[in-house]
Computed example of a mutant assay.
Amino acid sequence: MNKLKRNERIAAMVKILSDYPNKLFTLNYFTERFDAAKSTISEDIVVVKQSMNKLGLGQVKTVAGATGGVKYVPQTSQYQNKKVLDEVCEKLIEKNRILPGGFLYMMDVLFYPAIIQKIGEIFASQFTDKKLDYVVTVETRGIPLAIMTAKALNLPLVILRINSEVTEGSVVSTSYTSATTGTIRRLSLARRAIKPGSKVVIIDDFMRGGGTAKGMIDMMQEFESDVEGIGVLVATKIPEQKMVDDYIPLLIFDEENECDGKINLYPNSQLVQNEKNSENLKI
């Protein structure tokens, strides 16, 4: 391999780090990949670190020691959150999205990769300070959100099933009550899916009363695992008292203030630049 110039090494390094967020790369990896001295690679890392920080593109962290190295940690600013969440709001406030039961049709947005990748990074930014082992969701609409969050956190994704599959072997099942309909529902998960004593974060697409999230928490207790956080794309404003505490909604759906078919949906003010800049978007 021909020797690379500094700008070529830095471009390649940014690409590698950003493609594998939260993955630790040793200095030896880059010295061998670029056929360069450790001192040269260290200088390159400083440039990458300063540039990413200056432009608000996330953090490049170095870990000292024989087992250390460098990793890229996605980190979104409140300004970036507002830009992404406003874009999502604009798509979701289109007419005819309200479904029977007061739900919001979101499938087209949930399965749009460019949008979901950004949302996954916003979720990941809320949990980077926690030591986690898994990202957990329930099939099926929450899967795109959860897998992008798992990618940003460099964690495996665990999917709770509504109906168990014979291909998963022995499973653990639990029942929960839907806070919306009051019906009893069932969740199942393969016994080998999560190691006992793990720490997890739950990601889902929609929360009204929190029954599904409570069911997932109960399932984690069956595996003697702790839920360190809950993130949902959209949470309804009413009821204010959910069946779970300490959840992070990205968007708030205020059904009470709907009028003339207009959808009242807005970003969580705690995640965006300021409350004034998070004005409700209506059509």
Rank of each mutant, 00 (worst) to 15 (best):
T181V: 12
T181K: 07
T181E: 14
T181Y: 07
G182K: 09
G182P: 10
T183I: 13
I184H: 01
R186D: 15
L187F: 13
L187T: 10
L187W: 08
L187C: 04
L189N: 07
A190E: 11
A190S: 15
A190F: 09
A190P: 03
I194V: 15
I194H: 10
K195H: 11
K195V: 15
P196G: 04
P196H: 15
G197A: 09
S198I: 11
K199P: 02
K199H: 15
V200R: 06
V200T: 12
V201P: 01
V201G: 01
V201M: 06
V201W: 01
V201E: 04
I202F: 02
I203M: 08
I203F: 01
D204V: 06
D204M: 07
D205Q: 08
F206S: 05
M207Q: 03
G209H: 08
G210W: 10
G211Q: 05
G211K: 10
T212W: 06
T212A: 11
A213E: 14
A213I: 12
A213Y: 02
A213P: 02
K214W: 12
K214R: 11
K214I: 11
K214M: 14
G215L: 14
G215I: 07
M216Q: 07
D218Y: 03
D218T: 11
M220C: 15
M220F: 09
M220L: 15
E222L: 10
E224S: 14
E224A: 04
S225H: 09
D226C: 02
D226L: 07
D226M: 02
V227Y: 04
E228G: 00
E228W: 04
E228H: 00
G229D: 09
G229Y: 03
G229P: 09
I230R: 00
V232I: 13
V232P: 06
V232G: 03
L233G: 03
V234Y: 03
T236Q: 09
T236M: 08
K237Y: 11
K237F: 08
K237M: 15
K237S: 07
I238Q: 09
I238K: 11
P239D: 02
E240K: 13
Q241N: 14
K242T: 11
M243L: 14
V244H: 03
V244R: 00
V244C: 02
V244I: 14
V244A: 11
V244K: 00
D245G: 00
D245F: 03
D245A: 11
D246C: 03
D246I: 03
D246F: 05
Y247N: 05
P249M: 09
P249Q: 06
P249Y: 05
P249F: 05
L250E: 03
L251N: 11
L251I: 04
I252R: 00
I252S: 01
I252G: 00
F253D: 13
F253M: 11
E255Y: 02
